[in-house]
């Protein structure tokens, strides 16, 4: 799935309110723009958010500038910031056959029991965030780490694009910690063969 072969790809993020799904969806759009996608958009599922409640955000990447902003209903990829959402939020709903599923979980891809030809990748981003003590308001944050998993599981973006994005988005100190999280997550991501 190299960038130059893609006309448009739609990605849905699943997280819980406070986990930063909307932020990372936006950061992915920016990283993909740096990677050469001319059309990138990202938006939260519109409406009110509550801390802890399941939330979604969507990122659209395209080779040409985007003209439509309606909500994503049949994503090509889902990124799940907390493993339990795979079932409780029915995170693969509408996912294209052979679509990508990228999950923050301790389990290996094969252990998730997913079918439909999905290309599954998993990583224990919680452990990585704990190890490097990446926290916001005391809570460990895995949203930026999961950008590293995207870079590993797909060819949409590279760590360079992620680094540039994070340096743009955060203060120098915070950026370096998030860059470290993305790099470690990139390295630890397991893709089903």
């Amino acid at each position: 799935m190299a960038m130059n072969q893609i006309e448009q790809i739609e990605i849905r993020w699943h997280g819980r309110g406070g986990q930063g799904a909307v932020t990372s969806a936006n950061l992915l759009a920016e990283a993909a723009y740096y990677a050469g996608f001319k059309g990138v958009t990202s938006a939260p599922a519109f409406g009110a958010e509550r801390r802890g409640a399941p939330v979604t955000a969507s990122t659209r990447l395209a080779s040409a500038p985007l003209r439509h902003f309606s909500q994503v209903e049949a994503p090509d990829m889902v990124i799940i910031l907390e493993g339990s959402l795979l079932t409780t939020a029915n995170a693969t709903e509408g996912l294209a056959p052979n679509g990508h599923v990228i999950v923050n979980t301790r389990l290996a891809p094969e252990e998730l029991g997913l079918s439909n030809g999905y290309q599954v990748a998993t990583v224990d981003a919680d452990r990585i965030a704990e190890e490097i003590n990446l926290r916001a308001a005391g809570v460990i944050m895995v949203n930026t780490a999961m950008l590293g998993a995207v870079a590993r599981a797909t060819e949409l973006i590279t760590l360079d694009h992620i680094n540039r994005t994070l340096r743009h988005a955060f203060s120098p100190k915070a950026a370096e910690k998030n860059i470290e999280a993305a790099r470690l997550t990139f390295e630890a991501t397991r893709c089903a063969s």
Binding site: N26, A29, E30, Y33, K38, G39, V40, T41, S42, A43, P44, F46, P65, L66, F69
Partner: peptide, 12 residues
């Protein structure tokens, strides 16, 4: 400009 659809959607 359309609320949420543009107000809360990022693009270049």
């Amino acid at each position: 400009y359309d609320g949420f659809i543009l107000s809360h959607t990022v693009m270049p």
